[in-house]
């Protein structure tokens, strides 16, 4: 595997663990109350942001290695 993909996977798997832990924690203690529409909206925004970054970076890595 190209080193570019090793760093990519490390970034989004280990980073994803931190992200998920933080998100689960704030939901569990109701700091993010999913019954409230605003909190629900921001929770979704966080998740979309995470996967958006992951997709953009994947495309970038692909282009860097293959073009």
């Amino acid at each position: 595997m190209h080193e570019g993909w090793v760093t990519y996977l490390y970034q989004f798997i280990i980073g994803g663990l931190f992200f998920a832990a933080g998100l689960v924690y704030v939901v569990k203690v109701k700091a993010a109350d999913l019954k409230l529409s605003e909190d629900r909206k921001w929770t979704i925004a966080l998740i979309v942001g995470f996967f958006g970054l992951a997709v953009v970076t994947a495309v970038w890595t692909l282009l860097a290695i293959n073009s």
Partner: peptide, 14 residues
């Protein structure tokens, strides 16, 4: 500049 998102939930809701 691009690796801040992982810790954002704790800041945003905490």
């Amino acid at each position: 500049y691009l690796n801040d998102w992982f810790m954002i939930p704790l800041f945003m809701f905490g």
